[in-house]
Design a protein around this nucleic acid. Structure first.
Lengths: 96, 96
DNA sequence: ACATCACTTAGATGATTAGCTAAATGTCTT
DNA sequence: AAGACATTTAGCTAATCATCTAAGTGATGT
């Protein structure tokens, strides 16, 4: 879960996730949306994959990236839930 | 908002927030809960304050840290909401 | 006034990170 | 087999980061 927050700490990576929200995309397609080199984007993809936030599928010459919403949900809402935020499992009630 | 995610990327800082959830605490009191030096903790506090996640109040010799839940909520649920997670404002419906 | 306590700032160090170019890998097409 | 294409790996650099010790600041108590 630390890996997830580490991955989310970079704006480029958060934006990649947002792009992936609308559906799977190839590495090159994703890379075109950012003003950095492809190798740099590849490194970002590695971080996202390491955190389990995306999965890959090889199709011909391309590598297709898929968003793993469940991992994002578990980390984000899990943490938020500990603060009584969102729809997470309610923590210890304040009066206890 | 980038500052918030940057702040959340460190486990020590996330734990500080969790400790603060039960109520305000002094810097030293918080520092005692971690195996690092006070100056290091002070640096972590600075990051949290810079992100707006905590506020300080000086009481005598002590500095009391307060959690700013609203900032955490806005960043966390705002981002999660963009993915249709949690109780955030629903994004574009999937069928559109 | 002086010592003490609580905390922060200064300054240094080693590790990690995001970025680059160049080269390697793997897949398709001809 | 050769070339083109998509992506990753290798190797480098500059910047940022977490950590430390030592010194500074500011409030309290004697």
């Amino acid at each position: 879960m630390n890996d997830v927050f580490k991955a989310l700490s970079d704006p480029t990576r958060r934006e990649v996730l947002r792009l992936l929200k609308s559906g799977p995309r190839s590495a090159g397609d994703l890379a075109d949306a950012f003003p950095v080199s492809r190798p740099t984007m590849s490194a970002h993809f590695n971080v996202l994959r390491g955190a389990g936030l995306v999965s890959t599928e090889k199709v011909g010459k391309s590598v297709i990236y898929h968003l793993n919403v469940s991992v994002l949900e578990e980390a984000l809402l899990g943490f938020a839930g500990a603060f009584g935020l969102g729809a997470g499992v309610p923590p210890v009630s304040p009066s206890e």
